[in-house]
C-alpha cells in the first residue's frame, strides 16, 4: 500500500517537474514567454482544456473513456447561446452557465445509460454519441432566415451578465475561468480521494469484477462518471462561449476530446483506470498548454502540434506501461494481441 502511494506522487512530481523544466527552457529562449500577459493567456487556455480533462479524469480513472466531450461542448454551447440566455440581460449569467452544466450532464447521462444499461462498449458508444451530439449542435444552431437550410450565423450573445463570465476578474489580471478551474480541481481532488464515490471509482478502475463482487454499485458509479464528464464539458463550453461571445457550430471539429485525453494521459491518469486523480489532469493540462504556447512562440507550424501531441500520448502511455501503472487486469485482458473488448 505504501508503494502505491509513493508511485502516485512520484508520477505527479514527474509531470510537474516536466512542466517546470519546459517553462524554464521557454522563458530562457523566447523573450515573450515569462510575462504577466502570456502566463495569463496560458492559464486561461489551460483552464478550458483543464475543465474538460477534469471531467474526463473521472471516467478514465474508472477504467473507461469518453470520446464525446467534443460533441458535448459543441451542442451545449449552441444550446446556451440559443436558449440559455433567453430573457435578455435580466437572466443572471450564472444561471445560463448552470443551464450549460445541466445540459452537459444530461448528455453524459445518456452516455452512461448506453454503457451501463444497454451495455455497449464505451469506446464505440462515445465515438458515436460524439458524432451525434456534434450533428445535433449543427442542427440546433441559430439560422439566418429561420429555416433549416438557412445560413448558420453565430448569434452574438447579448446577455451582459453572461458575457462578463468570460472576462478577467476585476483588479487581478486573471480570467474568471482560471480561478474556477483551480478551485474545482482542488474540490474534485478531495471528492476523488476522500469520498466513497472516489474510492469506488478507483476500485472499478483497478478491478471491476471484484469491485462488483464487493458490493460496489458499478452501474451507478460509472454512470455518475459520465455525468461528471459531460457536466464539466458543459461548463467549459459555457465559459468558452462567454469569452468568445458566440457559439460556433464547428466546435465539434476541434478535437477537444483528443486534447483532453492527451492532457490526462500526460498528467498521469493511466489508461485502464485505477490510477490518477484530478490533480494529474490539472498538471497535464498545464503541460499540454505550455507546449502549445511554446510552439506559437517559436512560430512552429501548426501541424507540428499534432505530431507532438500524438508522440506525447504514445510516450506517456509507454512510460506508464513500463512502470507498471497500467493495471495488471488491463494487461491480462489486453493479453498479447491488443484486444479492445471482451
Amino acid at each position: 500500500m505504501k508503494l502505491r502511494i509513493s508511485t502516485r506522487n512520484v508520477r505527479k512530481l514527474v509531470s510537474a517537474g516536466l512542466v517546470v523544466v519546459l517553462m524554464l527552457v521557454f522563458s530562457l529562449s523566447a523573450d515573450s514567454f515569462w510575462n504577466w500577459r502570456n502566463m495569463g493567456n496560458l492559464f486561461h487556455d489551460a483552464a478550458f482544456l483543464g475543465l474538460i480533462a477534469l471531467g474526463l479524469s473521472f471516467v478514465m480513472t474508472g477504467g473507461g473513456i469518453d470520446l464525446s466531450v467534443g460533441g458535448i461542448v459543441c451542442v451545449t454551447a449552441i444550446l446556451v447561446s440559443r436558449f440559455g440566455t433567453l430573457g435578455g440581460s435580466s437572466v443572471p449569467g450564472v444561471l445560463a452557465a448552470l443551464f450549460a452544466v445541466l445540459c452537459g450532464g444530461a448528455f453524459g447521462l445518456i452516455n452512461g445509460v448506453l454503457v451501463t444499461r444497454v451495455r455497449l462498449t464505451e469506446f464505440v458508444t462515445t465515438l458515436a454519441t460524439g458524432i451525434l451530439y456534434s450533428g445535433l449542435g449543427l442542427l440546433l444552431a441559430y439560422r439566418d432566415n429561420g429555416k433549416l437550410s438557412g445560413v448558420i450565423v453565430p448569434k452574438g450573445i447579448q446577455n451582459e451578465s453572461f458575457l462578463s463570465l468570460g472576462e478577467k476578474v476585476g483588479g487581478t489580471g486573471v480570467f474568471l475561468v482560471t480561478y474556477i478551474w483551480i478551485a474545482l480541481s482542488a474540490a474534485m481532488y478531495f471528492v476523488m480521494r476522500r469520498t466513497n464515490f472516489g474510492l469506488h471509482t478507483y476500485a472499478i478502475g483497478s478491478h471491476s469484477r471484484s469491485a462488483g463482487m464487493s458490493g460496489v454499485n458499478v452501474r451507478r458509479i460509472k454512470t455518475l462518471g459520465f455525468v461528471i464528464s459531460g457536466a464539466f464539458a458543459g461548463l467549459a463550453s459555457a465559459m468558452l462561449t462567454a469569452n468568445m461571445t458566440a457559439a460556433s457550430a464547428s466546435l465539434g471539429n476541434n478535437g477537444y476530446e483528443f486534447q483532453g485525453i492527451a492532457a490526462c494521459v500526460v498528467g498521469g491518469i493511466a489508461l485502464g483506470g485505477g490510477k490518477g486523480d484530478p490533480v494529474n489532469a490539472m498538471i497535464g493540462a498545464i503541460f499540454l498548454q505550455t507546449i502549445l504556447n511554446g510552439l506559437l512562440k517559436f512560430n512552429i507550424q501548426a501541424y507540428w502540434s499534432y505530431v507532438i501531441q500524438g508522440v506525447i500520448i504514445i510516450a506517456a502511455t509507454a512510460f506508464d506501461t513500463l512502470f507498471g501503472r497500467v493495471t495488471h487486469m488491463l494487461r491480462e485482458r489486453r493479453s498479447i494481441a491488443g484486444r479492445e473488448a471482451v
Binding site: 510537474a16 512542466v19 517546470v20 517553462m23 504577466w36 500577459r37 502566463m39 495569463g40 492559464f43 478577467k168 483588479g171 487581478t172 489580471g173 486573471v174 482560471t178 483551480i182 498545464i286
Partner: peptide, 15 residues
C-alpha cells in the same frame, strides 16, 4: 505552491 505562485503572479494589472 510554485504552481499557485505562477498563477497568482499573472495577477498583475493588465499593462
Amino acid at each position: 505552491i510554485a504552481l499557485a505562485v505562477s498563477v497568482i503572479s499573472s495577477c498583475a494589472p493588465k499593462e
